[in-house]
Structure formats: structure tokens, C-alpha cells
Design a protein around this nucleic acid. Sequence first.
DNA 1: ACAAAAGTGTTACCCTTACACCCATGC
DNA 2: GCATGGGTGTAAGGGTAACACTTTTGT
Lengths: 218, 218
Amino acid sequence: MAEQPASVAVSTVIFGIQDHGGTAKVHLPLVRRVREPHLGRWALPGGPLRPDESLRDAARRNLADTTGLDAAHLEQLYTFGAVDRGAPDRVVSIVYWALVRTEVAATTRDDPNVAWFPVDALPPLAFDHEEIVGWAVRRLKNKLGYTQISHALLPEEFTLGQLREVHEAILGRRLDPANFRRRAEASGTLTPTGAHQAGARNRPPALYRSTVREELLT
Amino acid sequence: MAEQPASVAVSTVIFGIQDHGGTAKVHLPLVRRVREPHLGRWALPGGPLRPDESLRDAARRNLADTTGLDAAHLEQLYTFGAVDRGAPDRVVSIVYWALVRTEVAATTRDDPNVAWFPVDALPPLAFDHEEIVGWAVRRLKNKLGYTQISHALLPEEFTLGQLREVHEAILGRRLDPANFRRRAEASGTLTPTGAHQAGARNRPPALYRSTVREELLT
DNA sequence: ACAAAAGTGTTACCCTTACACCCATGC
DNA sequence: GCATGGGTGTAAGGGTAACACTTTTGT
């Protein structure tokens, strides 16, 4: 333990898909601050790094502490360490971003100081957290293009229509179903379960299971 | 100032192109450690973050202190903070990576404890610095593909042949000169100066100047 | 029958790659 | 003239985007 010019914190931007007026939208959970500074404002889950935990473990702990959830994907985003970030003492924040599956996100532990917001309609945030969320959203959009990261937002089994909805929610535009299907199939990361999803008032779509390895998403 | 479980350091991976047996190769400067632990080993330039400097400023200071050089490109790479990274106390290292221009790299201040090494023939490094260099090299290769970052390794004016040599050095394979030229021209980031480089025993190549904005390289 | 989404087929277009070929200079 | 890299032309192949069309369900 040494006297330091800056303390180390870890925060996490958590993304999940939720229904918002009939269409899937990207949401994220925020925590209402119960201390100064920025008391009462919404902020990203986070807190000081503990001496015996890795950065990644700290991020996972943020997730568990605030939502009780488990991440399907977790990855370092960026480190923010400007001299004045809105706190009285200097804090260097290592920020992670996480993806949780839809059905998991729905089971968020009840807490009056935790709530999910659509990323395109966030309340004013504490510190420099709006900038941080901006970085995370950009990264999410980018990674969508060259990895199969979107699978981590869906349940174990899903239809190509659901997968496409996720992409449309993140990119903010409609995608051609035919071309999307071919792309998805060509990725070689989907295996049909053989089952079909009944119930809709149209042709029952095939169910798929993702076969991507977490290690390949870097 | 608070009692902390971890101290904050900033290190920088600096890349420059140098001639190595007739062909251009990617090099980086290392510093010989003059203190325990890992006394005598080569390490990345770096040191503790000062209270009144930004992370980026600290990285720039690493560069100036060890080589006396100025970076044409400087960007955050990743933050390494495992519990045991080879130092007695816990250190969280925010690592930056930098590109310096060839003619600048040649003017490195003389210092027996600083030397440039080809990235494909590094000595054993201190701490987890080999892993860090690996990350930086990967990032450099990637960014080469979708930005004009390579311009930052060359002088203000350069030929397409030189630019191609840089790419070949980084990718480790030969590129088709014809296709490389078209790609470079199509990027819209090069303006011919009108001058040609005389002296070679072949047709004098046209000189170009880069018009990329540093902000667009993210 | 009809609507609505699943799923297949087809075509135009662009970008990349490979490679043939000409140009200008030093020796 | 000849070697050497600079610079232009061209054609094949692969991937993407646009869109027509068929299939299968619920109502």
C-alpha cells in the first residue's frame, strides 16, 4: 500500500435488449447515486478496485452487485483518467462493457436505485459517464460488423429474425432479411437445433444455437 | 491523496521504422532497468502517473524522457492490472502506443540504457511487457487495414514505394505495388507535391504529402 | 383467401487480386 | 542496352445489396 496521486476504480457499461413499444431496443442499467458528488444522479455501476481482484473480476462484480446478473460477454473498453473528472479526488476509471442475454436481463433484482434506460433516451448522467457510454455504444456498433458478438444478447436458442432485430436495434436501421440470413449462415457460427418456433401467425422460423467461442470475439 | 490498493503507472510502446540489413523493419525503443525488480532487464518506457498530468501527457512524457522524441501518433492501447504482474506492490499500468517518424527516430538521444530493437527479435523483457508488446503489434497491424496510420511513420514527404515498404514491414509480407498504389490513391488522403525524388537508379518516383487528420485515426 | 414473416433465387455492382505491360532513369 | 522500380491497364473472382418470388403458418 502506497500513498498515491490517484485512486483506481472500475466501472461497467452493461448492454441488454429490451422491448420498447413493440420493437427491440438497446438498454442499459444505471445506478442512482446515494452520495455526493452528483447525489441523486444516475451513474454507471462501478466502484473502487479491491486489492485482491483482477480488473475483470471487478467489472463482473459491478454487474452482480447492481443487477444480480451474469454477463455473456465482458471486455475492457477504455481507461478514463483526466485530471478533473468531477470528483474531489483524482480517480482513474478502467471501464468494461458487458452484454447480458435478454431473458437474463428481465430478471434484474429489484432495487429502487437501479433502472434500465434505452441508450437513445438516457437521463443526465454523473461525472463523464455520458462520454463513456458514447464510447461503449460506438464499440458495440463496430464489433457487430466483424464478430458474432450479437449472439451474446440472445437466449441460447434463437431465430434469425430475432438476431436480425438485435442488429437493427444496435445499428438503428432496417436490414434486408434475405441478405442477413445468408451472412449469418456464411459465418459458420450457427447450428440449427432442428426445432421450429411455433405460435406466430406466420411460417414457423427455425431455431439456431450459437457456436462462437468467447475467445474469438476479441 | 488516499491510501490505495494499487498504484497507477503509464507505459508506452513506441514504434518506428528503421533499416535492418537493407529492408525496413519495425523497431521499438526499450529501457534497461536500473532498479530491482528485474534489474538489468529491458522494459517499456514508463513510470508512475503524476497528480497533475493526464494519462496521455504521461505517455508523451515517457516518450520525451527516454528518447527525446515527439510522436506523430499517440493512442491508448489497454490497461493491464492483474493482481501479480511481477512487482512487489500492485501496479495498474495504462499502456499507450506511439508512432514516430523515421527521420525523427534516427535522432534518438544517446543513452546507454536506451536502445532500439526489431520487434521480431526482442530481448527478454521485464514484467509482462512481452504480452503488452504483443497487444500493441496486433493493434498496429489491424489499424493499418482501416486507417491511414502508416503515414505517421514516414517523413512529411514520401513516395508510394516508401509507404508500401512500411506496410510490408508491419504485415511481414510483400504487397503488389500496382494494387497498393490504387488503394492509397483511392483513400483520398494523399496529395502529390509535384516534386519527384531523384537519385535512384530508376524512374524517379513522385513525392506525396499526407492529408489525414489525427482525429480521424480512431 | 389473406396477411405476414420465413426462406430461396437472381442479378448488378464494387472491390480486391493477379498479372501483363509500358515508362523513365542510372549505369 | 539493360536492370530496376515507377506507373497504367485489364480481366477474373468474391462478396454485398437490391429485389422478385415461393413457402408455411394463423386467422
